[in-house]
Computed example of a mutant assay.
Amino acid sequence: MQILFLIALLLVPMMVHADIVVSVRTIRAKEVILASDLEIKSIAVEGAVADPGILVGKEARVALYPGRPIRAADVGPPAIVDRNDLVTLVFGRATLSITAEGRALGRGAVGERIRVMNLSSRTTITGRIRPDGQIEVN
């Protein structure tokens, strides 16, 4: 009888409490997250971020409300190019490098692709954002 009880106990799912990260204030979308914006709560939420170090310095993609769990998809790298920013377009092959002035038609972080308008030709092109804020065009 005791063996059946032990087996039944093992088969019943147990609620495991884990630490998750929540915000202490409302963080608007496009706002960079600081360590002082976060606290740790001891509850189990599937998919919630458990390490505040992962979130610090990231940009909120959606509004984050106080006491609610933060998921990895809710944050991303901070944007370095905003819509309507003047940017340098760079086209490079081997020893040849051509630059032009452009206007960003979107916003994005390092490595993301955005649409840009070449100001001299008024042509819309797509390029990848470099760490220095220039747009690499192929």
Rank of each mutant, 00 (worst) to 15 (best):
Q2F: 02
L6H: 06
A8G: 09
L11S: 09
L11V: 10
A18N: 03
A18H: 03
V24T: 15
R25A: 12
R25T: 11
A29I: 00
K30E: 12
L34G: 05
D37L: 04
K41F: 13
A48W: 06
D51P: 11
L55T: 11
V56E: 04
K58D: 06
R61Y: 07
L64C: 11
V75W: 08
G76M: 08
P78G: 13
A79W: 13
A79E: 13
F91G: 04
R93E: 11
A94H: 13
T95F: 10
T95K: 09
S97I: 13
I98Y: 05
T99A: 02
T99W: 00
E101N: 11
G102S: 06
A104C: 07
A104F: 04
L105C: 01
R107M: 07
R107I: 00
A109E: 04
V110I: 14
E112A: 06
R113Q: 10
R115Y: 05
R115L: 03
M117Y: 02
N118W: 01
S120E: 08
S120G: 00
T123E: 07
T126F: 04
R128E: 12
R130K: 03
R130C: 00
P131H: 01
G133C: 08
Q134E: 09
I135H: 11
E136Q: 06
E136P: 00
